[in-house]
């Protein structure tokens, strides 16, 4: 009798799986099933306003259209460029802010809070704010430039190809630099004092200390911030949609303004999902890249692999 085995859910070797089951089920229903469903729809001619088209299998037709669609690939390339510029600017500015705030001793908490203000706004509000700042006729910026005598023309901030992309990146950087600043500041707080003091004793100047001790120590934090922000920026939508809507003439079209227009305005959800799946490759590539760099940085610091 004593040897009778307990039912399998009570056996010790199954306990971890049993405990994980709620999490696995949640992920299955909340993440995996919708993903599989949207992947399926990318092989159909699914149109939102015609539910019956959900069963209209078109094979690879949506993907074929995408691969022959120049507009999509231009938007794809622009998104990569947008992401690269925005991330680097945010990193540099965030690092600068973190280093400055780390130096001050009085009012640091207040400054930290103020620094986070831009993050508290909804991206749509940020979009409207900068749309009116950059408006060529009644916008603050052009009026200020004209009043100061720095410009005698109306600069078409949201129309010119270079300026429009600059304006959007500016808004994006304004809103999210503090993500970098906060994470890097956390890194600076966690930094041990000993190596810094040892370096100073050995006669290193400030730049050498920063270059060889502070920065390598911060790199894991940088790559974590980069990963988070690259996922964010790769699906940038609200700000762009409000400021330019991807225009004019597609000059500021990013992947998600194109996908949203295809999926909702044109109601071609099947094709939009195919676009989304191709664009996910971009996010996967960036995430993989930053994780590789993160591991390398941690290894360099003697941390866990």
């Amino acid at each position: 009798m004593a040897n009778k085995r307990p039912p399998f859910w009570q056996r010790e070797k199954y306990t971890p799986y049993l405990l994980l089951l709620p999490a696995i089920l949640t992920i299955l229903f909340v993440v995996l099933l919708p993903l599989i469903f949207s992947l399926y729809t990318s092989f159909t001619g699914y149109r939102l306003i015609r539910p019956e088209t959900l069963w209209q299998w078109v094979g690879l037709r949506n993907y074929q259209r995408i691969f022959n669609d120049g507009d999509f690939w231009v938007a794809f390339g622009r998104t990569i460029l947008f992401l690269t510029i925005a991330l680097n600017l945010e990193f540099l500015l965030g690092l600068g802010i973190a280093l400055l705030i780390n130096k001050i001793t009085w009012g640091q908490r207040t400054l930290r809070t103020i620094m986070m203000f831009p993050m508290m706004f909804s991206p749509i509000l940020v979009g409207y704010q900068f749309k009116f700042v950059f408006n060529d006729n009644i916008g603050i910026l052009n009026n200020a430039l004209q009043a100061l005598g720095l410009s005698d023309g109306a600069i078409p901030w949201l129309v010119d190809e270079f300026l429009a992309n600059f304006a959007i990146i500016f808004a994006e950087v304004w809103m999210s630099t503090s993500v970098f600043a906060i994470l890097l500041l956390a890194g600076l707080f966690a930094m041990p004092r000993d190596p810094l003091e040892a370096a100073k004793v050995d006669g290193c100047n400030s730049w050498q200390v920063f270059r060889h001790i502070t920065l390598p120590f911060l790199m894991p934090f940088v790559f974590i911030a980069m990963t988070i922000r690259s996922l964010d920026v790769a699906r940038a939508y609200d700000i762009v949609d409000v400021m330019t809507g991807g225009g004019p003439a597609g000059r500021t079209e990013l992947l998600w303004t194109l996908i949203a227009r295809t999926g909702y305005d044109n109601a071609r959800m099947g094709q939009a999902n195919a676009m989304a799946y191709v664009s996910i490759l971009l996010s996967i590539a960036f995430t993989y890249y930053f994780f590789t760099k993160l591991l390398a940085a941690r290894k360099y610091m003697g941390g866990a692999e």
Binding site: N135, D136, A154, P156, W157, L158, V159, P248
Partner: peptide, 11 residues
């Protein structure tokens, strides 16, 4: 206005 191409009704 140079920004017209970005204007909607409010603008």
């Amino acid at each position: 206005p140079a920004g017209s191409l970005n204007y909607l009704w409010d603008d």
